[in-house]
Design a protein around this nucleic acid. Sequence first.
DNA 1: TGAATAGTGTCTATAAGACAATATCCC
DNA 2: GGGATATTGTCTTATAGACACTATTCA
Lengths: 269, 269
Amino acid sequence: MKNPKAARLTKQGSRRFPDRVDPIVDQSERDFLATYDPSAFPHPSVTVDVALISITHQKLTTFVVRRTEYPQRGSWALPGGFVRFSESLDAAAARVLSTKAGLRNVFLEQLYTFGEPGRDPRTRIITVAYYALVNVDRFMAADSESGRPIEAWIDVPWEGEAGGPVDVADTSGAPLELAFDHADILGMAVKRLRGKLDYTPIGFQLLPDTFTLRQLQEVHETILGRRLNKDSFRRRMLASGLLKGTGKRQDEVGHRPAELFRFVKGAAV
Amino acid sequence: MKNPKAARLTKQGSRRFPDRVDPIVDQSERDFLATYDPSAFPHPSVTVDVALISITHQKLTTFVVRRTEYPQRGSWALPGGFVRFSESLDAAAARVLSTKAGLRNVFLEQLYTFGEPGRDPRTRIITVAYYALVNVDRFMAADSESGRPIEAWIDVPWEGEAGGPVDVADTSGAPLELAFDHADILGMAVKRLRGKLDYTPIGFQLLPDTFTLRQLQEVHETILGRRLNKDSFRRRMLASGLLKGTGKRQDEVGHRPAELFRFVKGAAV
DNA sequence: TGAATAGTGTCTATAAGACAATATCCC
DNA sequence: GGGATATTGTCTTATAGACACTATTCA
């Protein structure tokens, strides 16, 4: 064995990686590790949880799966799973989304890492939360191999970017009890969305390929939880250079049809 | 044993928590765990790394510690450490800051979680990165029990919020080689700072208790990496309600002294 | 033709940038 | 007084909000 310090690591680690040394190495860390008993202090587990966000019926919507086991059996959870040893965090989140919702090539971004020791009553589980955005068609097509995923409407009890947990209800309006700290994760996702909307073209992720200016405005209003000035919104969007008119128009709308626009690739997302 | 599934968990875990069950429970997760060999797939380790940011000599500055062990011996690293089993992530970051820099009651916020499988050559280490802000006096007083921490000047090779790794140099201008992905962590910290500056009073964290408008403007300019319009900056700050004049003035400045202001508590940070 | 929304043009209020004029300190 | 920066005031320009008016589709 090249390095005697390996013996201080977890048995698991030392069996598999006899040559590895302390990951962060300075004196105080070594002191800590010298007195560190891996059987007394097992490693935390690491999971990813994904808040899949869409807009249905003019409401912010997410995708929850009913828990079939204790604890919190019967409550609703975001799709999640363990991070595998040789898999990046992004890849783990994409895998969860693919496995549990059948979705690939989705806008997916890391949100925040939740690690309160008591957040899961069984053991220490640190979860890296992600959020994903899909338009209503892809959202409705999302399915789960594992149970009865449902569309959950998000009710945000705070304004602006104050932040905090949110409430969710099913499509009949009945409240859904969220498992663990998933109400906080969803709240963080809404806060992030509101913050990013001002300076990134994130709203397009929630719309079909072509859309009208009013549809885009409704997306923004739904995310922000407040009405926007129509004239100003229109001017800003057209001036942004992010939209390109298709020349085509809506049809069968019972009034003058609006022009359909498309998102122009190239601007940062 | 109440639950037979516990036998599938890691040996470490099952010794300590014989009754715990699968953390995220649905069919596909159970399928995964049923074929999951804990000795073949050891848990990732979890650390925190803290980018301690200040402004010295009109430059963005951070605090790095020289590595005394392989790998990357001799390169420079952000202070970091393992997350203990019963310690929150925030508490771990505060502990690192206290232990390695002697700083308490510091502005400290979670930044991003870095978890590429190859980011540490020894084993899988997922790190939850934090950033902390202190004014120059506290920064200069920061010390480490473990080695030779130094002031490192940050050179940001991109504009706006483009993001990406940054370079660092010592106070003589000589480049410092950063360990692992710490250049990415610092880059993320700068990007976050630039983004937050527009709508949060984050600049006050980098200044002494009282300060002039020009000093505040210089902080903003240093963070943003570009010059700001003096008149407009002054008007915006005074109109924000975040500043309160103290009636006192600078002295010994060789020109007309400016009024000293104080940050008004109460606005969100 | 009427209902309903799309799209255009104009006016006003507000904020930012530019710049000039004055104030106040130290030397 | 001279040098230097603070502070105030004014003008111009860009953008947001408000509102009136015209355009186009379907029923």
